[in-house]
Nucleic acid binder design. Structure first.
Length: 418
RNA sequence: GUGAGCGUAGCUCAGUUUGGUAGAGCGCUGGGUUGUGGCUCCAGUGGUCGAGGGUUCGAAUCCCUUCGCUCACCCCA
């Protein structure tokens, strides 16, 4: 038997209602805030990702699905979407053409990692990007929109963590200082932290080892080493968040794994999702557009993990409302044939209707209708055929009435959809 | 890449310690009512016991190998 390959999964109709809710609500909310949908290719030149995400990140070093096409060119299935959107923004000169530099997109991403709860090799993100704005109010507004979005979904228990990781002017000095202090304590740290100290020093803040925690707390916080512009930006972002009444926690450990981030970084987590509890993550990337060959342009964005939102919705016991539906029961061959016409007519009139094609007994058809959760059943048998009516039975209380065929669509609309 | 747990019916699982030739609940189909669902009762359908090899008179059960799934580490959505 063929199986979906490791780290990929099938999303079946029974779960799709949640996905529609997540994606429809995103479209609704983001467009309200002025974002336009963009779709970019699922694969790009490999160097687009290695250059933007950073050569020495885990994503580029060991997680990319890279292959050569028949021309020998190295291509990569996108591990994230920002690089592609920025590439498109530069390629199409959207700085000249678009009045509002706000974009969102929805689609699959690919990373070769060991799957676990909330983590897949093909996973889905909803992303929002604002390109060409540097004002701190924009950072706060993006975060505010995300809370609004979560509230619309019914997810009210999200936690926001916020940090600033500075800019190319102030970060190197801080990192030097940090590395020196870490080096002095190197032997006291766990083996993970020792390797982190060279590769990605900021990650040390992430260590869960209690022994390391004591040392970590003594390390200088980046917040105290930002240059005046970054510091001012960070303060203003926070002041707008307070103005919006948004709760957050400044977290020096929040460093993000991608090289292109500058200044504001943030992450939303949700309780009850397991180890992978980040439902959204993002930040400012003021240097990326220039890095990819465009002119100096500030930008900020967020990536939302769709699978993790699905988990959160399930965790909260939220399910989409049940669809209104009708079931046509027929008795006898002539009624079945006439029923096929009737069901066509109902659908054309906007009435959801199902039927049985396996010759089930009347009782069997009613059992099926009940199992499907149909609100109403239409019974068409010999008696009804003679009279030119159908028997309309409401499943909630079992009440029945005869309805003339030509009045059926309007009657159903009134009873079920009104 | 590392570690742990788990693979038995469509689903959830029992049976594995103490080898004797596979079970339950749910689901599905039909019937109790030849034109009335849910509740209930009856009957039926359904399994290469993940795969391969070994030990044995005999293996779901013991041994070896292998594949897969899950969770966690790392890292991230």
């Amino acid at each position: 038997m063929y199986r979906a390959i490791r780290g990929t999964r099938d999303i079946l109709p029974e779960e799709m209602g949640l996905w529609h809710r997540i994606e429809d609500t995103a479209r609704e909310v983001f467009e309200l805030y002025g974002y336009g949908e963009m779709r970019v290719p699922i694969f790009e030149e490999t160097t687009l990702f290695s250059r933007s995400i950073g050569k020495h990140t885990d994503i580029v070093e060991k997680e990319m699905y890279t292959f050569t096409d028949r021309s020998g060119k190295s291509l990569t299935l996108r591990p994230e979407a920002t690089a592609g959107v920025v590439r498109a923004w530069i390629e199409h000169h959207l700085d000249q053409r678009a009045l509002v530099g706000r974009y969102y997109y929805i689609g699959p991403m690919f990373r070769y990692e060991r799957p676990q709860k909330g983590r897949y090799r093909q996973f889905h993100q909803i992303d929002a990007e604002i390109i060409g704005e540097s004002h701190p109010a924009v950072d706060a507004e993006l975060i505010e929109m995300l809370f609004f979005y979560l509230n619309r979904l019914g997810l009210k228990r999200a936690n926001l963590m916020l940090n600033s990781i500075g800019c190319p002017r102030c970060r190197p000095g801080y990192l030097d200082k940090l590395r020196r202090q870490v080096k002095a304590k190197l032997t006291e740290l766990c083996s993970d932290c020792q390797s982190r100290s060279e590769r990605n020093t900021l990650r040390i803040f992430d260590c869960k080892n209690t022994n390391c925690q004591g040392i970590i707390n003594e390390l200088p916080a980046i917040e105290d080493h930002l240059c005046s512009e970054c510091s001012r930006h960070f303060q203003q972002v926070q002041s707008y968040l307070r103005r919006f009444g948004i709760e957050y926690k400044v977290s020096p450990r929040l460093v993000r794994g991608l090289d292109y981030y500058t200044r504001t970084t943030f992450e939303f987590t949700y309780p009850g999702l397991g180890a992978q509890n980040a439902i959204m993550g993002g930040g400012r990337y003021d240097g990326l557009v220039a890095l990819l060959g465009g002119k100096e342009t500030p930008a900020i964005g967020v990536a939302i993990g769709s699978e993790r939102l699905v988990l959160a919705l399930k965790e909260e016991g939220i399910s989409p409302p049940e669809a209104v539906s009708t079931f046509l029961v027929t008795v006898g061959e002539e009624a079945f044939q006439r029923g096929m016409e009737l069901i066509r007519e109902l659908r054309h009139q906007g009435v959801f209707c199902l039927s049985d094609y396996q010759g089930r007994s009347l009782r069997g058809q009613l059992r099926l209708a009940n199992k499907l959760g149909c609100q109403a059943v239409l019974i068409l048998g010999e008696d009804e055929l003679k009279k030119g009516v159908v028997t309309l039975k409401m499943m909630s209380d079992g009440s029945q009435q005869e309805v003339a065929l030509d009045l059926l669509p309007s009657t159903l609309r009134r009873l079920l959809y009104g």
